[in-house]
Write a protein that binds this DNA or RNA. Structure first.
Length: 278
DNA sequence: GTCGATGTTATCAA
DNA sequence: TTTGATAACATCGA
């Protein structure tokens, strides 16, 4: 599902193709996907141009001329697709923008957990969706990383998934990162020493950067803005591999629930750290 | 036809 | 502070 590498892939793909395009029309087919946002703001998009796209955590931030922002979250099954005009729309398409000439940006979301909001640029930094986010996990320095996780209680996997701690890691990459760092998902973060924290920090950078290079993981629903699948699922070491041998130690990959989330790990090389609680 | 799983986030309860 | 349950929603597979 769309986590940091998938959202980054979508943003990069769209940036290449829609920056500079002029918006000729905008349609909200399912008002629900605006959530509480002011629907009137969308009318101001007409005639404006796309200035740029950014990612923050799992959020897509589209800057529009006239001081406007489109904020998109794909949640579980959302897609942002760039298609030619007048292509058939299925019932899961909830929002679309037509560009002058040719091209149509569509928000499609089977489960409708995602959202598209439009507001003024000056309000961007005050938005709770943005303000609540922790740092970018593959860019944060080790001292900052150590500070964020070092004195936290709670299970390390749940902390990695907490967007206020680090922004952008989801279930797939949390499992892959922990496997690479040889840390059991149930490990209490307070028991991670300097060496383990550093391993975790390096594993985070390594996994996320490599996943971006392979254009994300298409386990089930994820597609990029051109409708194409990612390739990183072919390199998963634990996620979705229950019962298969660990590629590092040969033990059978196991699955358990951690904080209500299905979690894959290797019982051979991911041990819960012993010793007294800190 | 029903049930459970899927996996993101906000919210509420303990 | 942390953890768990729930709800939003639709689809798939058993």
């Amino acid at each position: 599902m769309p986590e940091l590498p998938e959202v980054e892939t979508v943003v990069r793909g769209l940036a290449r193709r829609i920056i500079g395009l002029e918006i000729s029309s905008c349609r909200i087919l399912s008002p629900h996907i605006r959530r509480d946002a002011d629907g009137r703001m969308f009318k101001e998009l007409m005639g404006q141009k796309v200035l740029g796209l950014n990612r923050r955590g799992k959020l897509i931030v589209i800057r529009i001329s006239g001081g406007l922002i489109l904020l998109v979250h794909l949640k579980m099954t959302g897609r942002l697709l760039l298609v030619k005009n007048n292509q058939a729309c299925d019932r899961h398409t909830h929002f679309l923008i037509r560009f002058k000439g040719d091209g149509e940006l569509r928000f499609r979301d089977v489960r409708k957990f995602g959202f598209v909001k439009c507001f003024r640029e000056e309000d961007l930094d005050d938005r709770p969706e943005i303000r609540s986010l922790g740092p970018e996990p593959h860019e944060v320095s080790f001292p900052a990383f150590r500070e964020i996780l070092g004195d936290r209680k709670g299970r390390i996997k749940s902390l990695l998934l907490n967007q206020a701690v680090l922004a952008g890691i989801g279930n797939i990459y949390a499992d892959e990162i922990l496997h690479r760092a040889r840390i059991h998902p149930l490990t209490n973060a307070s028991r991670l020493d300097q060496e383990k924290l550093n391993k975790l920090w390096r594993a985070t950078r390594h996994i996320l950067c490599r996943a971006i290079r392979y254009r994300g993981s298409s386990v089930r629903d994820y597609r990029d803005s051109g409708g194409r699948e990612g390739r990183f699922q072919d390199y998963h070491r634990v996620y979705g591999r229950e019962g298969e041998p660990c590629r590092r130690c040969g033990a059978g990959i196991k699955r358990m629930m951690v904080g209500g989330r299905g979690s894959y790990f290797c019982p051979g090389c991911q041990k819960i750290l012993g010793g007294p609680a800190v």
